[in-house]
Amino acid sequence: MTPPTSPTVYSAATLPANDNVTAYAFCVDLDGQWFAQKGKMIAYYGDIRFQALSSGPLDALVAANFHSPLYSQDWIVAQGRGKLLLADRGFDVNSYDLDDGNLTIRAGNLLAFEPGLELKQSIIPGFLTLIGTGRFVAASNGPVHFVEPPIRVDPQALLGWADCPSPAHHYDHSYMRGVIGAARSMFGIGGTSGEEHQFDFTGQGTVLMQSSEVVADEDALLRDLEGQIGVLGVSGLQRLHHTIGRRLAAERQD
């Protein structure tokens, strides 16, 4: 069989410290505490404890660094000494260093961050903002591509953004006005394909793009939507119910 190349065998000592092992896996050299999203740890060496954010001893840490009740059940704190391997769906994994900065990223794609950073919910549903100084690790479907505003990005291809103002919604009027576009906007046939709606970035900063987001964070998005239902009254809920019913009927016909 050709070529008989043997893979690199890593040990607890030779695994990279706070660096990528491959393009798809990151190794945290833990000595203290890191926040990590559940289900993103594939293996570890050493003496590491995992604790829910709700567990009592973490109250002070959570109060200082984790300001997202919506996502708190998805996160834990890894505590102790050892090497912790992170990976996510075979996606590309990258680490980012913030120096007194801010970066907003798709919630489902954030794997872990140091307590030097504070986590907050973004104004844009499904996104989280990291503020402060420290390192975090995030996954992307395909390598990350950095672009500068002005640019319009398909919501599914948006991984995050740094330093620039939050995006605005952009609707392609001519596309919407077309026969098919009109049918889509009225009945939502076939869902959205992305060509009629983008996120519009302006100003100074950097936008992070990925190839696409697939189902992976539908759960996060749903939870975001559910979280917003709380502010609706009875009439609002009825109207929403009506809209969803009409959309479901259209999907069935499609």
Partner: peptide, 8 residues
């Protein structure tokens, strides 16, 4: 699914 990592 993604390159395998060998751990001793």
């Amino acid at each position: 699914d993604g390159p395998a990592i060998a751990l001793e």
